[in-house]
Write a protein that binds this DNA or RNA. Structure first.
Length: 575
DNA sequence: GCCGTTTTCGGCCCGACTGTTTTCAGTCG
């Protein structure tokens, strides 16, 4: 069985091998291809079948051929050959922090060391002493890197929703202190990647040393790893790395652009600048020695003849070319949200719980709130309330108030069966956690669902299952929920849905505490998937969302049948 | 190995920081 993730890992390892062999540019070429393959929204096999492998950024003749070999045989001969030539332990060595390909290669060539264990022995035997470029500090550093790696303290990426409260806490601490003026989070966090490897914080300040001093005493900070004049690196409790940089106000936009990335986006931007006789770095855009932009990101993109590119799109997937042709289509943003179709209340929730949801919705200026009383259970009911309603649950248990439905998918729900729902079927009852005998209720009478929820719970991490659910949503004209957590779509899956013409539902975290990540992260994923306001179902006013009456139902079906058919796509963590 | 509204050949982002150095190599992001 082949997979995009495995292919990407093969190319990444080829890059490491080539690094160890001292190749200059090939490693980056293979890594670039690996990143592209990882961020595909469909299986490599499907792209190959259309003979479009070469349209993947960073894939040329040579790599396309290797992908075809991989798809055909499950392995890449070039990779297998390198694996025989180069001890795999060297790759482990060069991935240790502070070590790189040059150092690992020297251990191999000069000392015959082929992996972490042998290096540990060599250090213990004093064989590094006297090697040019290896002083006492360097050897100590390597010794602790080896120990940390053996203890399994590998720095790994974390889900963005886990990092979100940490980022907020650190930003607030910096803002509340007197020394930092502007504070922003850059990096993959700002691009709303599904996982975040570290946090990049950017501040302006007249007194960087004091910012660093204050920052390193924050309760979340466990250890200061490095402090220079403009940059400090710390480890938080639990080993998560945070980089803090202080920049001048006139450089803030350039620095924010630079440290937001992605790497591929920046490389492309720089080469575009070079073509135009300009130079871009984290201090600004320069013509010769003259700074022509730098205070804001808009200025930076503008000076290169580009429209502003939202951070979530900065992956070098064609956004730079589009920005060169003119302004990009707007992405959905927080003020666009006009309601929430999917709030869960516990089965024993009293009227005050519904009141609270309605009041919160009203406070935010929402036009409606959809309340599911009960969990993802067979007995849950969905009601769509205008926020002016003073809700009482007993009152709500009357059909005339139910103007929408949520298809509550559950672990036992099978999209293949649901996909066979005839076009004129009406879904009145949510089927969450439905037992086999309950599935027939899907074919009952009533309005079609507005929303297909909890898709991930039914195994949508599989590309085929996801495609099937997308097809269900497309056929009945429903939206699918995007956002953090295994039960919602990540940005790659959301892009698959959008490509099939299915709209997204952005959860608003209506009843969640202030630093709950749901809404912000869901918006980020939706934007990363390229969702325009129009592609999000809960930007609409109530009348358009509700599905009472056959007229609106027919109208929606008419629209959805004009949309392109779903294309099965691989679901990968975002790039 | 990839790529091209200046290029199908000759480029390939660029600066901070560290440790080891009397001017730089390696790593990192």
């Amino acid at each position: 069985m082949t997979s995009n993730a495995e292919a990407a890992e093969i190319f990444r390892t080829i890059a490491d091998f080539l690094d160890l062999l001292g190749e200059k540019f090939k490693p980056e070429a293979y890594r670039r291809a690996a990143r592209s393959i990882e961020s595909l929204t469909e299986e490599l096999g499907a792209v190959a079948a259309r003979k479009e492998l070469r349209s993947i950024p960073g894939v040329g003749d040579a790599i396309a051929e290797k992908i075809e070999e991989y798809l055909r045989t499950g392995s890449v001969p070039y990779y297998e050959r390198l694996k025989r030539e180069i001890p795999p332990g060297l790759v482990e060595l060069m991935r240790l922090p502070g070590l790189g390909p040059k150092t690992a290669r020297r251990f191999w060539v000069d000392l015959g060391v082929e992996g972490p264990n042998e290096l540990r022995d060599a250090i213990a035997a004093g064989r590094l002493v006297g090697m040019k470029g290896f002083g006492e500090k360097k050897i100590d550093q390597i010794r602790s890197a080896l120990a940390a790696s053996a203890a399994g303290a590998g720095a790994s990426r974390r889900p963005i929703e886990e990092v979100y409260p940490v980022a907020r806490a650190l930003v607030h601490a910096l803002e509340d202190g007197n020394d930092a003026d502007r504070v922003e989070v850059a990096g993959s966090f700002r691009r709303a990647r599904e996982t975040v490897g570290d946090l990049d914080l950017l501040v302006t300040s007249k007194d960087p040393a004091r910012v660093f001093e204050t920052f390193s005493t924050h309760p979340l900070v466990a250890e200061v790893m490095m402090r220079g004049e403009t940059k400090e690196t710390v480890l938080l409790q639990g080993g998560f790395q945070v980089d803090l940089r202080v920049v001048k106000p006139e450089e803030f936009g350039a620095a924010l652009q630079y440290f937001t990335g992605s790497k591929d986006h920046n490389v492309r931007l720089r080469s575009l600048a070079r073509d135009r006789g300009l130079k871009v770095n984290e201090y600004g855009v320069f013509r010769g020695d003259e700074r022509i932009a730098g205070a804001t990101e808009e200025e930076v993109y503008g000076s290169l003849g580009l429209a502003f590119i939202p951070p979530e799109l900065r992956e070098d997937r064609g956004e730079i070319e589009r920005a060169a042709r003119g302004p990009l289509a707007p992405l959905v943003s927080d003020p666009d949200l006009k309601g929430d179709l999917h709030i869960h209340l516990p089965p024993d929730a009293g009227p005050e719980a519904v009141d609270r949801a309605v009041a919160e919705a009203r406070g935010r200026g929402y036009a409606y709130v959809g309340v599911v009383v009960g969990g993802v259970g067979a007995d849950s009911r969905v009601w769509l309330l205008p926020p002016t309603t003073r809700a009482r649950i007993p009152e709500l248990r009357t059909p005339r108030l139910a103007v929408s439905a949520v298809l509550e998918t559950g672990r036992d729900a099978v999209p293949d069966e649901l996909a066979e729902i005839p076009h004129d079927a009406r879904i009145v009852r949510p089927i969450g956690g439905a037992s086999a005998s309950d599935r027939s209720t899907v074919r009952g009478r009533g309005p079609p669902p507005t929303l297909v929820a909890h898709v991930g719970a039914s195994g949508a991490t599989e590309a085929a299952t996801l495609a099937a659910w997308v097809e269900v949503a497309r056929r009945v004209g429903a939206g699918i929920e995007v956002g953090p957590g295994s039960e919602r779509l990540d940005s790659g899956a959301a892009r698959t849905a959008l490509e099939a013409g299915v709209r997204l539902h952005v959860p608003t975290g209506l009843l969640a505490p202030p630093d709950d990540p749901t809404r912000a992260v869901a918006l980020g994923f939706a934007r990363r998937a390229g969702a325009a306001p129009d592609s999000v179902i809960n930007v609409r006013a109530e009348a358009e969302v509700s599905t009472t009456g056959s007229g609106s139902t027919r109208e929606r079906r008419g629209r959805s049948s004009d949309l392109p058919r779903s294309r099965p796509g691989a679901r990968r963590p975002g790039s």
